[in-house]
């Protein structure tokens, strides 16, 4: 067994496809910071009223949550982007 192959066994997710473009694209999506509107919507989807927490707490609470199915009004979402 090569040294690289040996150590790869200990890295989580290293058994996935190793196509570099796909991995880079995923990483970019994951690392993109959430907009304030998206944070609010994710919190509501989790049953949290976003006004009742500080902005820092909100970010921490929703960072691992999946995106909600409901989007804000289109014009506001566009403005936010």
């Amino acid at each position: 067994m090569e040294r690289r192959a040996f150590f790869r066994r200990f890295i989580p997710g290293s058994d996935r496809s190793s196509a570099p473009e796909a991995l880079d694209a995923n990483r970019e999506v994951e690392q993109k910071p959430l907009s304030e509107n998206e944070c609010f919507l994710r919190a509501m989807a989790m049953g949290i009223d976003p006004a009742t927490v500080t902005p820092g707490q909100l970010e921490a609470l929703v960072s691992d949550a999946k995106p909600s199915q409901t989007t804000p009004k289109k014009e506001h979402a566009d403005a936010e982007a």
């Binding site: 609010f40 509501m44 506001h76």
Partner: peptide
Amino acid sequence: FDVPIINRVFG
């Protein structure tokens, strides 16, 4: 203030 609010209200 432009924020989404509970039960589909905006702002």
